[in-house]
């Protein structure tokens, strides 16, 4: 039976790498996002690489009325339906400091939008007792720091949400995996400050596949970030609050 992946944020380059990889394995796709021309190109690419089906659908984390058509389409599919969330936005912290109203948008893009979608689809996954959820968060969610703590806070919220969803869906045999990438060489980081221990979308996609195969709960990618963040989390707050990095 074919697995169909609902991809939220299909224009992200990490999503693209994941789609290519799973297309070659014969998965089908509902590719969801805002730039429909771009998603149509990714859908065509997925079909030519082996996906039996790849449809482009409009999705905007800030517009919950875009969710229903995707949920309806998913309900009409036979076999396992899985969801991978690649959405999120990371404006400069300075821009947010100048315009605090931006916080609501960041939280919607990175946390509450996808969480609403996942909560809406959860009953269907429970009923089918099949499918997987991949939620891409960030190491930035492990501890709030000067440079991007609003983005980090949203990702932290999303990670906690995923932990709860795992607790709920695990009972029905649905595997929920949280993915915490360090810096990845994408359009989001291009031209920004030089990042240590950076990785590529292809490596993230490969790590996601490995984590799914092993039914891992939380993965870091590149793997070294598990260790780095263990150290970062262990720094006492009185010291951490004085650090700049």
């Amino acid at each position: 039976m074919t697995e169909t992946w609902i991809i939220l944020g299909a224009t992200s380059s990490i999503a693209r790498a994941f789609i290519r990889q799973e297309a070659a394995n014969g998965s089908g796709f509902l590719l969801c996002g805002r730039d429909m021309d771009d998603i149509a190109a990714t859908a065509a690419d997925a079909r030519l690489r082996g996906a039996p089906m790849a449809e482009a659908m409009a999705f905007d984390a800030r517009q919950p009325d875009t969710f229903a058509p995707i949920l309806d389409r998913a309900a009409s599919l036979s076999g396992a339906v899985s969801v991978a969330v690649f959405v999120g936005s990371m404006p400069e912290q300075a821009a947010i400091d100048a315009d605090p109203a931006m916080i609501a948008g960041v939280v919607t893009d990175s946390f509450t939008g996808p969480a609403q979608f996942l909560t809406a689809i959860a009953p269907m996954m429970e009923t089918r007792g099949a499918g997987r959820v991949v939620g891409v968060g960030s190491v930035a969610g492990d501890r709030g720091r000067l440079g991007n703590y609003v983005y980090g806070a949203s990702k932290a919220g999303f990670a906690t949400y995923l932990s709860g969803l795992r607790n709920r869906l695990g009972r029905s045999g649905v595997h929920v995996m949280t993915v915490k990438p360090g810096p990845v060489d994408t359009a989001m980081t291009w031209g920004g400050p030089k990042q240590p221990l950076s990785t590529t979308p292809e490596v993230v996609a490969r790590d996601i596949a490995r984590g799914l195969a092993k039914r891992r709960n939380v993965i870091y990618t590149a793997g070294i970030w598990r260790l780095v963040m263990a150290v970062v989390r262990a720094i006492p707050e009185p010291i951490f609050k004085k650090m700049t990095f």
């Binding site: 693209r16 730039d35 021309d37 771009d38 190109a41 359009a187 291009w190």
Partner: peptide, 9 residues
Amino acid sequence: VARPERRSA
């Protein structure tokens, strides 16, 4: 150097 990921860029 720019490295666009979408043609709209």
